[in-house]
Nucleic acid binder design. Structure first.
Length: 199
DNA sequence: ATAAAGATCATT
DNA sequence: ATGATCTTTATG
């Protein structure tokens, strides 16, 4: 069942980052459906978080999306080649976001392989924030879309991921964030091979 | 107008 | 450890 608005209005971004683990991220573009189980996330805690694009109330054309109501997609382009997908959370005006860092493929694996230009399934299909967006065909044109609609959304699962199955650590490649780089705001499912290997 | 940096990844 | 590749942002 598609997650509804109240799930995304959660004011605790570290909590929602953990609750997104185990849920299914789905895209359906031109009738083509692809999806994967979320296995790794990172929480970005708005204006107080030195790692966040919205740190210190930074408000630009790009970051404007983060100030929208929870349940909006925030997608940005980085390093000249990658689109990174985030789930905006909390009420409008508070720029919380959760970066989806890795998924375990579920539906449309053949299509995803084609999009990634891979012959056979390996972990580099979708284990990494810049890779899963390719597999699901998400790009910056989708930034601002509502996750309550039928192009990009997240499905609830009967089986909840329990706190015992979740590990945490510092976020990846946020060295510019000074002391906030040390906070444990990266979460992943213990022993899941689809978690990114990045360091 | 210009320059620097970046929530990455594949390769050496 | 390095290179690819280009948008976004800050600064002048």
């Amino acid at each position: 069942m598609k997650l509804k608005s109240d799930f995304y209005l959660n004011p605790d971004v570290e909590d929602i980052a953990q609750k997104l683990l185990g849920k299914i991220l789905v895209t359906r573009f031109n009738g083509i459906l692809t999806s994967g189980k979320i296995v790794e996330t990172e929480a970005y805690a708005g204006v107080q978080d030195k790692a966040s694009h919205a740190y210190n109330h930074r408000r630009t054309k790009r970051t404007e999306i983060m100030y929208q109501k929870g349940g909006t997609a925030y997608v940005y382009f980085i390093y000249g080649m990658y689109n990174l997908f985030n789930v905006v959370s909390n009420q409008a005006g508070i720029p919380h976001a959760v970066l989806i860092r890795a998924i375990e493929p579920v539906d449309g694996i053949e299509v995803m392989l084609k999009r990634r230009k891979l012959k056979q399934q390996k972990y580099n299909l979708s284990a990494g924030p810049g890779l899963l967006t390719q597999a699901l065909a998400i790009d910056v044109n989708h930034s601002g879309l509502s996750l309550l609609n039928s192009a990009i959304w997240i499905e609830d699962q009967a089986v909840e991921i329990t706190p015992r199955e979740i590990l945490s650590g510092p976020r990846i490649n946020v060295g510019y964030a000074a002391e906030d780089a040390l906070l444990h705001r990266r979460f992943w499912i213990k022993e899941n091979p689809w978690v990114s290997k990045a360091r």
